[in-house]
């Protein structure tokens, strides 16, 4: 049986019905067509599905849409404003912090929160802070470089 929820996503309120077993990531991708949030695993490990739920980075594959009722969700589609990339997105672009790009939306969402909590992290703190996000391509070096670049503001 469907259950009524009201979830605000990237500033737009959606009042709709969802099956209780609907995962937040599927609500975003399949109900709202916001396919920037990815699914990379079945085990809550990869972090490709990371979004902000009431301002906190969470794995949207491990939250039920009904648990997000009344909450505000921000996805990768919601971090840029007026067609301008977010500085973290720009940093990933400029330092080649991605190859296939599958992990990138989740990385960016987690990395922005990392810098909010710790504006000037060491490389070790960046690696530790992104522990919940796996990348199969880059070997992480350029991801760390991207976060460092975003932290120091050296992007054009």
């Amino acid at each position: 049986m469907k259950r009524a929820v009201t979830i605000s996503v990237n500033g737009v309120s959606h009042a709709t019905g969802v099956e209780p077993r609907t995962l937040l990531v599927h609500f975003l991708r399949e109900h709202l067509n916001l396919t920037g949030t990815h699914v990379g695993c079945d085990t809550s490990n990869c972090g490709a599905c990371t979004v902000w739920l009431d301002g906190m980075a969470v794995k949207s594959c491990t939250v039920l849409a009904v648990q997000a009722d009344g909450s505000e969700v921000t996805t990768i589609e919601g971090v840029s404003a007026n067609g301008e990339l977010h500085p973290m997105q720009r940093a990933f672009h400029e330092t080649h912090g991605l190859q296939c790009g599958y992990c990138t939306p989740g990385m960016v969402m987690a990395a922005i929160k990392l810098l909010e909590a710790n504006p000037d992290p060491s490389d070790a703190e960046i690696r530790r802070g992104l522990e919940g996000n796996l990348c199969r391509c880059t070997g992480y070096e350029n991801i760390v470089a991207a976060v460092r670049a975003a932290a120091s503001g050296v992007t054009v």
């Binding site: 809550s44 972090g47 990371t50 739920l53 906190m56 980075a57 969470v58 794995k59 491990t62 939250v63 987690a110 929160k113 990392l114 802070g129 992104l130 522990e131 919940g132 996000n133």
Partner: peptide, 9 residues
């Protein structure tokens, strides 16, 4: 415990 996202939930 786990990672940032796990600790938030």
């Amino acid at each position: 415990i786990g990672d940032l996202q796990v600790r938030n939930r």
